[in-house]
């Protein structure tokens, strides 16, 4: 599916000279990256290289961490998200996130998905909300499995279903960018395949950014890949090229399994 050359798309996210500090620790150094819209971009790299940290900068989830400081400029649609006028709450409605561990709310399946639209006032009537919930669960390929038990607790689903529920919850607020932090690390291969298929579908509507430890996954689902190492982006480019003919020695070592 990645054989065809992708049409060049405008960058959705631009990061310039991004620095992140955790107290004294300089976790992200000088990251510059452009992420095109309606595509899947994978962040790969060894543990502790800062890819998750950078991902969490994109919806300002790092704001909640005490002692974390972000410098530089991150633009989404040309707007600096660290500008003082930006309300992170509004930003997070536009930039959804799926976490490493499935973390559905301890509420019903319906309420899990409906929560975002409710708090953002995206629907006016119950019927509209029902529609949004159904659409989101459809998009997350979960509808057929849960349509008869929407009132059952979300925590009662299997791990893969829970993660798809989290994806449904994230897309229910109609974000433009979807961040996924190792969404399949807690899932078995079957559930992983389902989620990956889902990611490929989501690409048509959203700008998906995925952090993954699996080279195969990055190769399967992404169009562009960025390789992080020790807080810097060592190489970034089309996934095909990254996995067949990387420019950087470290990328080559990493994807061939020589370190990391």
């Amino acid at each position: 599916m990645t054989e065809l050359p992708l049409p060049v798309k405008a960058a959705k996210v631009n990061a310039r000279n991004v620095q992140v500090y955790y107290g004294q620790n300089h976790a992200i150094k000088d990251v510059n990256i452009d992420i095109p819209s309606e595509s899947v971009t994978a962040f790969i790299g060894p543990s502790g290289c800062g890819k998750s940290t950078f991902l969490r900068c994109l919806n300002r989830m790092n704001d909640t961490i005490v002692g974390c400081r972000v410098e530089g400029r991150i633009e989404i649609d040309g707007e600096d998200i660290y500008d003082r006028r930006v309300d992170p709450v509004q930003l997070r409605a536009k930039v959804g996130m799926v976490f490493q561990k499935p973390n559905p709310f301890p509420k019903s399946i319906y309420d899990n998905v409906a929560y975002g639209p409710k708090i953002h006032g995206l629907t006016r009537t119950k019927a509209e909300l029902d529609e949004v919930v159904e659409q989101s669960l459809h998009k997350a390929a979960l509808w057929n499995e849960v349509k008869d038990r929407l009132a059952a607790p979300g925590t009662g689903l299997s791990g893969g279903q829970q993660q798809r529920l989290c994806i449904a919850r994230a897309i229910a607020t109609s974000p433009e960018v979807l961040l996924m932090d190792e969404p399949c690390s807690a899932l078995d291969p079957i559930a992983t395949a389902q989620v990956e298929e889902l990611i490929s579908e989501l690409r048509n509507q959203y700008t998906v950014i995925i952090v993954t430890h699996s080279m195969q996954q990055a190769a399967r689902v992404s169009q562009r890949t960025a390789m992080f190492h020790m807080g810097i982006v060592v190489e970034e480019g089309p996934t095909d090229k990254m996995f067949t003919n990387p420019d950087d020695r470290r990328t080559q070592d990493y994807i061939t399994g020589r370190f990391g």
Binding site: M61, N103, I119
Partner: peptide, 26 residues
């Protein structure tokens, strides 16, 4: 669990919504 806070913040709940809708009931 912090994952619940993350989940709520991640869908764009404000801090107060996160606390009153999710943390406090738990």
């Amino acid at each position: 669990p912090p994952s619940i806070r993350d989940a709520a913040l991640g869908v764009g709940a404000s801090k107060m919504q996160t606390i009153f809708h999710h943390v406090l009931p738990l």
